[in-house]
Computed example of a mutant assay.
Amino acid sequence: MSEQTGSGGLNEYIQHHLQQNTISLGGGAFHIDTWVVSLILGLVFITWFGFFARKASSGVPSKGQAFVELILEFIDGQVKDSFHGDRSSLTPLALTIFVWVVLMNGMDLLPLDLPGWVVKTTAGAEVAHHTYFRWVPTADLNTTLALSTTVFFLILYHSVKAKGGLGFGKELLTAPFHAHSTGAKIALAPANLGLNVIEYLVKPVSLAMRLFGNMYGGELVFMLIAGLLGGGLLMFVPGVIFNAAWALFHILIVLLQAFIFMILTVVYIAGAYESH
C-alpha cells in the first residue's frame, strides 16, 4: 500500500484502484471484476442458504441454521409489515436482495491492496503495478443499475398482474388527475401519462444512485485513509485509527444500504397493488 502511494502520489493510487478489468462487448466496456465478484457472491449465498435449508430439522437448530432462520424471519417480518398479499414469492426476492447486497457491500471491508499484494508476491512488483481489480460490485454503477432495472420490471409485472393490462394502461392515463367527462379525461391523459412515467422511472434511478453513491463514497474514503498509511511513520498511527473507526462505521452503512434497497423494493411492489 505504501509503495504504491509513495511512487505516484495519492491521486495515482486512487486512480489505480478505480480501474476495472474490462473487455469490449456490444460496443461497450464489460466490467469483468464486477461480474465475477457478483457471480461468486451470488453462488455463496445460494450454497450457504441451500445447505442449511436441506439440513433443517424440527429439533434444536445448529448455530448456522439458527442464524439463517433469524435472517429469514427478519426479512419475512419486514415484508409482512409492508405487503399484505401472498408473500410466497416476495419474501424470497427480498431475502435474495438483502443478503446478496450485504455480501457485495461487505467486500468494501477487505484490504484494498490484497489483490495487488497477491500478484506482487506471485508475479512481481512490475506486474502488480499494472494489475487492476475492483472487488466492490455495488461501487460500480452498472451493478446498482442492473439491480434497480430488474426491480423496475418486477414493479411493472406486479402492476399488470394486479390490475390487468387494460387496467394498468387506464391508470397510467387517468391518474393522478381524475376527470369525469370524456373530454377532460382526454385532455388530462398526456399529463397523467407523463407524471406516471416519471414516477416509475424515478424509482429505479433513485434505488441505483443511492446504493452506488454510498458505496462509492465509502470506497473513496478507504482509499484516502490508505494514503495516510502510506504517508510515513508520522501518519501511520492516525491512519490505522481512522481506518479502524471508518471500518466500524462502514459496517452500519453496508447493512443499512442493503436494508433500504430491499425494503424500498418491497414497498414499490406493494404499491403496484394499490389503486390511485
Rank of each mutant, 00 (worst) to 15 (best):
Q78F: 07
G217L: 01
L220P: 03
L114K: 06
H250K: 04
P190T: 10
M107G: 06
I14S: 01
K120A: 12
L25Y: 15
F242C: 13
L18H: 14
R210T: 15
S206L: 15
T5V: 08
L39I: 07
F51N: 07
A175T: 14
V127Q: 05
F152Y: 14
L93I: 11
N21R: 15
T265I: 08
F222K: 07
V60I: 14
W246L: 11
W35S: 09
D86V: 05
A179P: 08
K185V: 13
A29F: 14
V119G: 01
G194P: 10
V99N: 00
T138N: 02
L166F: 04
P238L: 08
Q15Y: 09
I269H: 01
T91A: 14
L156K: 09
L193N: 06
T144V: 03
G169W: 06
E274D: 05
L110K: 05
G42Y: 09
K170N: 10
F212K: 01
L114R: 01
I155M: 13
D33C: 10
A162L: 09
L220N: 04
V254S: 02
F83W: 00
L112I: 14
T121N: 08
A272W: 09
A123M: 13
I251D: 08
G64D: 10
D33I: 13
N196H: 10
L172D: 07
W48F: 13
T96Q: 03
G116A: 07
H17D: 02
A191F: 15
E219I: 00
G194V: 11
T174W: 06
A66F: 05
G213I: 03
L70I: 10
G167E: 07
I46H: 07
S38R: 12
A53G: 04
D140A: 08
W100K: 04
W117A: 09
I263S: 02
G217C: 05
S24W: 06
I14H: 04
L109A: 05
D113F: 00
W246I: 11
F222A: 06
V44P: 12
S88M: 05
H276W: 04
A162K: 09
G85R: 05
A146K: 03
L109P: 00
Y273H: 07
F259N: 02
F177S: 10
L229C: 11
W246P: 02
G231P: 03
